[in-house]
Amino acid sequence: MLAPITTAHYLVLSAALLLIGTVGILLRRNAVVVMMSIELILNAVNVNLIAFSRHLDQVNGQIFAIFVICVAVAEAAVGLGILIALFRNKETVLIDEIDLLKW
């Protein structure tokens, strides 16, 4: 019989997803993939919230997860709009070629 799954397992999974998302933000050059890594980090936060919602036997964590999903939707819409505007002006989405503010 395997050991039972506890809240700590979910927290470890959440930490792993958050770190992988951070690595993606730091290593990838394509801005779309960087935004996907941000979505991964937001998902890691959601795993934490829902695991603690069950751990404390309250529904509040799930409400906060819904708010996090709403913020992620707004962020994706505006961020992808910015990317399209940027591509129209600079003809690239590679973040190391977008150096307009770099002296």
Partner: peptide, 9 residues
């Protein structure tokens, strides 16, 4: 989930 996340990167 972890394998797909690593694959994403």
């Amino acid at each position: 989930a972890v394998a797909c996340a690593i694959n994403l990167v």
